[in-house]
Design a protein around this nucleic acid. Structure first.
Lengths: 228, 228
DNA sequence: CACCGAGCGGAGGATTTGTCTCCACTTATC
DNA sequence: GATAAGTGGAGACAAATCCTCCGCTCGGTG
């Protein structure tokens, strides 16, 4: 259940083994807590869940932004790895997409990233790079699945991503976390059935067919993208 | 016990006209804010959005719980009215469900209620009554649509409700509220296509097939409901 | 059209909640 | 076993939020 992170910054003094474990545990805990409570969640809650003291968190991540960034990077690296693995191992593009979507729910990261988007500078190069990488693969899969006639032609990879976000976020209310996750998979199955080309109702989908690139330029304007 | 919050004429002195407007505006604003920021949102934000002073809010609702309850009740009354109207006006049960689901997104209440569930006593009779009423209608529609062969047989009304909640909640991230709502409808169309009997993939859906009644008894246990 | 009390707004003190530092103690690593 | 990296948690500081109090406004009625 863990992340290998921060292994790439080789110029810095390597962390002592136990310290590195702590760092990873903090990132994992932060991801959880951010999903549950939003990106403004108390850092103390995070350190507690990671089983470390608050000081350890602050030592490793000077401020909230640094932690946020680390979590986002970790999430991106994992999803990207997953989408590639699915692409390489599944027989069809549609199957790869379906598997990838289920995996994203398992890892529970689909929900983290967009939350953090509000907090992270888009200009961050390292983040932008991993992100672009993952998006490209997904876009390919979508195009291929559509060419294969498996995926309905009126959806974009942006739709898949956002649907995933919606399914990833924990349901409010009284039901136990674990049950909630099972339900997410159940509902994803419904969605996947709705994504098949054969399921599409006569007319095309209404609403804007956004891509992730559109999201990047949000904040300025929402230019009317007419889907067809 | 307790004063019932007087939407309906009770024995209490009727509110002055302007005061009643304010009251309604506060409830509407609270619904919005609770959806966006969670049930712990600052009350001052709510009063501001309602265009009243904070004192007015406190005068009308002695504490957070009273406000929360009023919002929940209002939300329930509206959804119940919507589901009935859809049932009476649409030609088929499936069409009624589809229309109702879109309406719920418009009204933006699907997202409010479950959030508030965490805060409201289930024992509250007035709430329980309206809720049971709405659920019964929906349950009927589901059964009928399944008998008609339009709705896939492996979903429950609980699934529809939860799917609705997922679609209702605002997406995190930078995209403008209005756009987010259009997308919700777009994605709901995908879901609806996935709910058609004709869309169901070979196997049955995995995961627990919960009903709303199951949700009521949450908190104690999660008895494994095996759907297959 | 004048009166009067229901209703109003918002400043501000009390309180809760969260941030971040400091320092004496612990423990990997050589 | 020496030593510097790493640790935890109390607590000073700051921010957010709650909720009350009180002088003014204005809808509704005669």
């Amino acid at each position: 259940m863990l992340a290998m992170v921060g292994t790439m910054k080789s110029k810095e003094r390597p962390l002592r083994a136990d310290a590195r474990d702590n760092r990873n545990r903090i990132i994992a805990a932060a991801a959880e807590v951010f999903v549950e409570q939003g990106p403004g969640a108390p850092l103390e809650e995070i350190s507690k869940r990671a089983g470390t003291g608050i000081a350890t968190l602050y030592r490793r991540f000077p401020d909230r932004k640094a932690l946020t960034r680390a979590v986002a990077l970790d999430a991106l690296e994992r999803t990207t790895a997953e989408v590639k693995r699915a692409r390489d191992e599944e027989p069809t593009a549609f199957a790869a997409l379906a598997r990838y979507m289920h995996r994203v729910l398992d890892i529970r990261i689909g929900a983290v990233f967009p939350v953090l988007l509000e907090e992270i500078p888009f200009e961050d190069e390292e983040i932008a790079a991993v992100r672009a990488d993952g998006i490209a693969v997904m876009q390919d899969l979508v195009a291929t699945a559509q060419r294969d006639g498996d995926l309905r032609p009126d959806v974009t990879h942006g739709d898949l991503g956002m649907l995933l976000v919606r399914l990833s976020r924990p349901l409010p209310g009284p039901l136990p976390k674990e049950l909630g996750e099972e339900l997410a998979h159940r509902h994803l199955d419904v969605v996947i059935d709705g994504l098949r080309a054969s399921a599409a109702a006569p007319g095309a989908l209404g609403g804007p067919a956004l891509t992730f690139r559109d999201l990047d330029s949000m904040g300025d304007v929402g230019p009317g993208e007419s889907p067809s």
